[in-house]
Design a protein around this nucleic acid. Structure first.
Lengths: 139, 139
DNA sequence: GTTCTTGCAAAATATTTGCAAGACG
DNA sequence: CGTCTTGCAAATATTTTGCAAGAAC
């Protein structure tokens, strides 16, 4: 639960990204989907926005740590809005489920990623926990 | 620890894949690397083998559950020899570490993937746990 | 001799970048 | 005006596939 609402605008202001019309559309699509989307999925959802703009917007968002990058084992990488403070970018991590039948990726928000302690010398920045299989919708 | 040695030949025989010369080379490269390799990395290691052959060999291996597919967040997907019985393909899972500086992916064999219980209706087939960050070599 | 593999080229997929024009401040 | 964004096209990257020739059994 969050004490404030997450709007495209408030997110960009918090993370220091200039909110242009296209960026608002892209972020809105991601928020409304409620699941991680790939560049191509965003492009399909927003017919009017060119993929190059989406690509550059996602780059900007990633740099500002406004969203997570998710490698789910499918063809393409997916992006998900980051529900945590800008300074401490990796505290909201949850498990994802990628359906190998329909290709969709779900957030299992209720399942946190268990902590692991890395060997000496490894500096973790980001954790990716994806379960692959068949989703309830496809089984 | 395994009671028998894992050779390209024995692995293919166990998993019912016809061992051709090229497949032996590809599997040998994967075993010798000791870390997950991408198709391109295999292509570089084996200059004499065409990437289409590698692609098809990897498909065959994947179908036979002879190797794991690993999405590590980098540009391309990586493959790793599966160290478990053919029937029960997902018992040897360990955490991986992907260095965002050098692009290499390491096996942290000593760190098992913690078990998670999925919600009703999700049928897990495969688990992907990748930590991204900077490796000891790059820091 | 039928089936599977090979090797090249071409297609398919996914994402990024060059560049000129335009919007913003 | 100077900087950042836009939109198109083209480039890049990665993997797969079509097909004819060859090897294996």
């Amino acid at each position: 639960m969050h004490t404030h609402e997450e709007t495209p605008l408030s997110l960009m202001q918090e993370h220091g990204v200039k909110p242009t019309a296209n960026r608002i559309l892209i972020l809105k699509a991601l928020l409304e989907a409620g699941r991680p989307l790939s560049l191509t999925e965003i492009e399909t959802a927003l017919e009017s926005v060119d993929k190059s703009i989406i690509s550059r917007a996602l780059s900007a968002f990633r740099k500002a740590r406004l969203l997570h990058v998710l490698a789910d084992g499918g063809d393409s990488v997916r992006y998900e809005v980051c529900h945590c403070a800008a300074e401490d970018a990796d505290t909201d991590r949850h498990v994802h489920f990628h359906c190998t039948r329909c290709g969709r990726t779900y957030c299992l928000e209720e399942i946190p990623i268990p902590a692991v302690s890395l060997p000496e010398g490894y500096d973790a920045d980001h954790v990716n926990f994806v379960v692959e299989g068949i989703c309830p919708h496809c089984s």
